[in-house]
Amino acid sequence: MIPLSHVIIFSLVIFFIGVVGALSRRNVFIVLMSIELMLNAVNIALIGISSAVGNLIGQVLAIFIICVAAGEAAVGMAIVVALYRNRFTVNVDAFNLMKW
């Protein structure tokens, strides 16, 4: 069947695509989507492992991750809306009010 290591490598590739997306892009939405990608990559790894290890704990955690990611996305979008109301840009680097 599918060796577990292939599954983990696949999920790691997606994870690092998410990392690159989150770090390099400056549009709020793409950064949020990259974080969703990273959480999904963890889901893939967990489901692969849970079928390899045999018990269902991985899938239970995966369900909770989906639930958390949905909650986070909701609050994220609320913040973006609030931010948009104050200033009419959503570029991440535009927020440099806080000097170092």
């Binding site: 994870f15 990559a41 790894a45 967990l46 849970s50």
Partner: peptide
């Protein structure tokens, strides 16, 4: 959280 979860996945594996 994503990094923490990846760590948990490895421990779980």
């Amino acid at each position: 959280s994503a990094i923490l979860l990846m760590g948990m996945a490895f421990i779980y594996s």
